[in-house]
């Protein structure tokens, strides 16, 4: 039982996809300008990750090794399109603010990476747990980055003003702020590990 939990836990801290494995950085930076977008992307990516890991691990024995990558891509793209359609149908505002990063979940290296490195070798249960852990790790990373950026860049958290009269630094919600925040956070993570 312990190993089941370990499978789930590793994605959250030790193998955190963003801070430790440095995967899926493009959406991490692009949609983390406020918490709502960050959470939306985190949930969408976790859904795709979970779906594709389950399907891929359950059909892993039927697929010849040589053509596995194209098969994985089709499975992943299918889930991404489902997410795209659901977002458009139920959350059009979120869909618009995430923009092209919804279809781009297809090329998020976390998902293909987990399919190749984990789901293709493990059972459905383990793969599902792995996907959940990685997804939550990704979501946490997004949450941390987007909270920092939203607070410093717009002076709000989840849209609510926190400190009256605080003049936000707009640069934090723009591109340079994203890169700077991520660089410093990875550095901070390294420093924690070193101690």
């Amino acid at each position: 039982m312990k190993s089941l939990f370990a499978e789930f836990k590793k994605g959250i801290h030790i193998e955190n996809p963003t801070f430790a494995l440095l995967l899926g950085l493009c959406p991490t930076l692009a949609v983390s300008n406020n918490i709502r977008n960050g959470l939306g992307m985190g949930i969408a990516a976790t859904f795709v990750l979970l779906g594709s890991n389950i399907i891929i691990s359950s059909i892993r024995k039927l697929i010849p090794t040589k053509i596995r990558i194209p098969c994985y891509i089709v499975v992943i793209a299918t889930f991404v399109t489902i997410v795209e359609l659901l977002l458009k149908a139920y959350f059009p505002v979120l869909d618009r603010s995430l923009g092209i990063f919804v279809p781009l979940i297809v090329v998020n290296c976390i998902i293909l990476g987990r399919a190749e490195a984990f789901a293709s070798k493990n059972t459905v249960t383990y793969s599902a747990l792995d996907a959940l852990g990685m997804g939550i790790g990704f979501m946490l990373a997004l949450l941390i980055i987007s909270s920092i950026r939203e607070f410093l860049g717009s002076g709000t958290l989840l849209g609510f003003q926190i400190i009256q009269g605080f003049q936000p630094a707009i640069i934090m919600v723009l591109a340079p702020g994203a890169l700077m925040t991520l660089g410093l956070l990875i550095g901070f993570n390294n420093w924690l590990k070193r101690r």
Binding site: P64, I82, A89, Y90
Partner: peptide
């Protein structure tokens, strides 16, 4: 031949699933 069959099968299933989802979400969108 097996490669072609597997790939085709995967694609057909994907297309069917998406067709189904699309027919549900299209009126909603």
């Amino acid at each position: 031949l097996r490669f072609i069959m597997v790939l085709t099968a995967v694609c057909v299933v994907a297309a069917l699933v998406l067709g189904g989802v699309n027919s549900i979400t299209k009126p909603l969108i």
